[in-house]
Structure formats: C-alpha cells, structure tokens
Design a protein around this nucleic acid. Structure first.
Length: 94
DNA sequence: GGTCTGACGGACA
DNA sequence: ATGTCCGCCAGAC
C-alpha cells in the first residue's frame, strides 16, 4: 500500500501538526515535491481555520501569501528577519 | 497522452 | 543578493 493514504491528506495532517509559533517549509511537508504542497494548500477553503496554512513558508523563509500571512505569524510570536521568517529559529526541528 | 501551470527548492552564474 | 534552469506531483485542456 504505497498509497494507503493520498499524499494530499498526509500533507494536511502535517500542517495541522505544526505548533503555534513555529513554521515548516513546503519541502518538509512533501519531500521531493514541494509544488504539490502548494497545490494542496491552494485548494483549501477560504475559511479553512482547521488548517494553519499560514505556518507553511518557503525554505528561505519568504512568504507566499504576503502581508496577510505575515500578520498571522507575527501574532503567534514567529521571529522575523525583515520580510522573511527567521527559519533558523522558527523552523520546527521535527 | 503530450504540454502547461502552480501557495516550491536547490544548483549555478 | 538576483536571475535562470531543471526537477518534482497532480490537475486541467
């Protein structure tokens, strides 16, 4: 059962597992296929409060959703370095 | 089924 | 630091 579960579901599950105040990169959620993670999140409903999509940032700490995403992250205490997240400190260890 | 696109990532110039 | 190229998965034409 290489596909006991759709990759999409696995990705969403990982996103929900990100604790407040931390972030993870697209590549971390879907190793080898970061674009897939983006596709999954893009299909998320606008009011998808069930999934903390804002805690998913690019590997270099830059944001995909701009100022809106940044506000949500800063509200959680995520350290920033200019317009990008300070991955060195906010990236979830594992 | 080939081709393009997308909330990407890493290598390289 | 900035821009280009290639690779990855899935969906739309």
């Amino acid at each position: 059962m290489t596909d006991g579960r759709p990759r999409a579901e696995l990705v969403l599950e990982r996103v929900r597992a990100i604790p407040e105040g931390f972030v993870r990169s697209y590549g971390d959620l879907s190793p080898g296929a970061p674009r897939f993670t983006g596709t999954v999140l893009s299909r998320l409903p606008p009011d998808g409060d069930d999934v903390p999509w804002h805690r998913v940032v690019r590997a270099d700490g830059s944001l995909a959703k701009g100022a809106r995403q940044r506000a949500l992250l800063e509200a959680e205490g995520v350290p920033f370095r200019g317009e990008r997240v300070d991955m060195r400190a906010a990236r979830l260890p594992e």
